[in-house]
């Protein structure tokens, strides 16, 4: 028997597979495909203080081995999430979840984290300072080490739950930002968010996405994510939730060898709603193949 269990800041996961925020809604849709209780945890849709419609459509553009999205943080707002979305998810999912919080100001981040702090279902708060699809917020906090540290420090004041800062790859030096977050008290790092990209329709001669640019994700970005996780693992002593183009159990093993303590699966869920299920089922097979007894033991093994 192989051991798939991992741990994130005291939170024990049966396996390291977590659907990534924004690709799994609040879990309800996937419960119509399979029993989602098998998932290690779930990272919920990015949530802001107020309800948001998000960006105009088209919001999606296909790419080779991936897609660009420019949803723009559409969500029903923190109160709705706590009152309706999480209780609804409790009907299909009996483990702790990861709440994903976004904001346009320090106060908004604090407000949302303070509220979600009281929610028992939430085991970890993932703080998104890296959304490429909203102006005057999101990524603006994640591209500057000083800002990233300040958000981290302020959020730590309003919650006792573990805080994982979700970082953007759209920076010159991600290591510096990860370290700043660690120094400011972050319990972990989530990385990477999407890469800023675009597509142009040769028929109309205009960008496909209404907002022109969007976040590129999918298997094409896996090597970039892996490289950044490898670099950040060398620099920090807090756990990393790795993500970026993960599409197979082998990718999960690679990402954990680079330094991830758990792995989120994003774009793959949209292409194949059973992606997480299939990866979890294939993990023991791949572990046997690569002579791995326990996933915990391979974290950072490539260093």
């Amino acid at each position: 028997m192989v051991d798939l269990s991992v741990e994130l800041s005291g939170l024990k996961l049966d396996n390291p597979i977590i659907p990534a925020s924004g690709t799994f809604g609040f879990g309800h849709e996937f419960a119509k495909f399979y029993d989602i209780n098998m998932l290690g945890s779930i990272s919920l849709k990015g949530t802001t203080q107020e309800e948001r419609f998000g960006n105009p459509t088209p919001r999606i553009a296909e790419c080779t081995a991936g897609l660009i999205n420019s949803v723009g943080l559409q969500n029903p707002g923190i109160d709705n999430v706590i009152k309706y979305q999480i209780p609804e998810l409790e009907k299909y999912y009996n483990k702790k979840v990861i709440a994903n919080i976004s904001g346009f100001s320090l106060d908004e981040y604090k407000y949302c984290c303070e509220k979600i702090d009281k929610c028992d279902k939430v085991g970890i708060i993932e703080v998104n300072i890296s959304c490429p699809n909203v102006h005057n917020g999101g990524m603006a906090f994640g591209t500057d080490a000083k800002n990233a540290a300040e958000v981290t420090k302020e959020i730590k004041k309003v919650t006792t739950k573990p805080i994982y800062i979700k970082l953007t790859p759209n920076v010159t030096n991600i290591v510096e930002i990860a370290k700043a977050c660690e120094d400011a008290g972050a319990d972990g790092i989530s990385m990477i968010n999407t890469l800023l990209g675009m597509r142009i329709n040769p028929k109309t001669k205009k960008p496909i996405i209404a907002n022109k640019m969007g976040g590129f994700s999918g298997p094409a970005i896996f090597p970039v994510a892996l490289r950044m996780i490898y670099q950040v693992y060398e620099a920090v002593n807090i756990p990393i939730i790795g993500m970026g183009g993960v599409a197979s159990a082998k990718d999960v093993i690679e990402m954990m060898l680079a330094g991830a303590s758990a792995v989120q699966v994003g774009a793959s869920n949209l292409k194949n709603p059973y992606a997480c299920k299939e990866i979890i089922e294939d993990l023991p097979v791949q572990m046997e193949k690569y002579n791995i007894k326990s996933l915990k033991e391979i974290i950072g093994g490539a260093h």
Binding site: G22, T23, F33, R59, V71, L270
Partner: peptide, 27 residues
């Protein structure tokens, strides 16, 4: 019709505004 990511309500790629609130074209 709208460009969709997933087609089953997860990605919010095909949202529109209606008099009864935000809706996803796919679900």
């Amino acid at each position: 019709e709208e460009r969709m990511g997933c087609g089953f309500g997860a990605c919010m790629g095909c949202s529109c505004k209606t008099k009864y609130g935000n809706k996803r074209i796919c679900v």
